[in-house]
Amino acid sequence: MSDRRTELESAPWSGRVRRYDLIKEGVAAVVIVAIVVAALSTLFGSPDDKQVTFKQWAVAAPADFYATAVQELAGTSGTAGYGAPYNHASDGVNLGPLYLAKWLGVTHPVDTVNDFVITPLTTVANAAPVADALKQWQGSDAKTQSTWATNYDTALTKANQDASKVSAGNYGPVPALAGGLLTMAQAGSLDGALLSQGNYFQSDNTKQTLFLGDGSYFNDQSTASNLQGSTWGMMNETGRYPGQAWLWLYSFWYQIPPFNNGDNHPFGANADAWIMLIMGALSIGLICMPLIPGVRSLPYKIKIHRLIWKNYYQEENL
């Protein structure tokens, strides 16, 4: 663009003007939008699928809950092996040589054994077998605990999560602990215990959410509501309500290779980080669009502006 053109385009307009009541326009806009929004609210309401509780999970899918509790003890759950910011179990996701999560450290420590199972169990009065199991667990060293939990986790997986079909073995108090947690969850006292962790004030649901996500039940609920990220779930909403359609581009990358394949290295396995990077770059691109050659010329080439200003162009014979 020539400097002369920029001068003309930035100078105060000296051509014809028309009456324009900005305040009236603004008030009318607020009133109309408020009426339309109130009408839609009256007609359709808003989405509000009930929250999933641990009680609901433990009652509806006890075997899944029980197996997840065992995984938390054995350290084989998703959370137990997550890495930063929850623990040091793995390096986590990386962008090539950049291990950003790991470098920023464990800022929200989660110890699945104690936070998810042992501490909640100590907050309630347990039946004798569970109380004894707790005592046995707490009186043992970490190596023994780990051996018991790993043995039982392996055996339970082999038995297809059916505790009644697990063959005898060296499991220590693990079956009783998982059973105690299941009873506690079914009674509805695990939800609060997980959140409070023995405290009074608490507003951080991290531990509940991570535990909930380690099982299959929560994931199945999400699949049933079409919310899985691998099937555009990021854009979707429960029921028939509109979702976050503005996330279409973010969601798009998860649907295409290599990002839709978790086994693909390095991109699929680290899709979260790469897509975050791509979207960050694209956002900067949007913000700086007028500076990008090619893109900034499109409005001159595809003359949609002739439609926008059709009246003016006609009147001025442009």
């Binding site: 989405p47 509000d48 699928d49 009930k50 929250q51 999933v52 930063a84 910011p85 986590g92 996701v93 962008l95 950003l100 999560a101 470098w103 920023l104 450290g105 800022t107 929200h108 951080d204 649901n205 991290t206 959410t209 991570l210 909930l212 996500g213 929560f218 609920q221 999400s222 509501s225 919310l227 990220g229 779930g233 990021m234 909403e237 429960t238 680290n270 979260d272 980080a273 897509i275 975050m276 990077l277």
Partner: peptide, 27 residues
């Protein structure tokens, strides 16, 4: 509600993956 439980569970991975999750904890 369920939607917010699920969104926080899913979105944590995105933010954690680049370290944002260390300071911005969606759960």
């Amino acid at each position: 509600n369920f939607d917010s439980q699920w969104i926080s569970y899913e979105a944590k991975d995105g933010f954690n993956s680049v370290g944002i999750g260390s300071r911005f904890n969606v759960t």
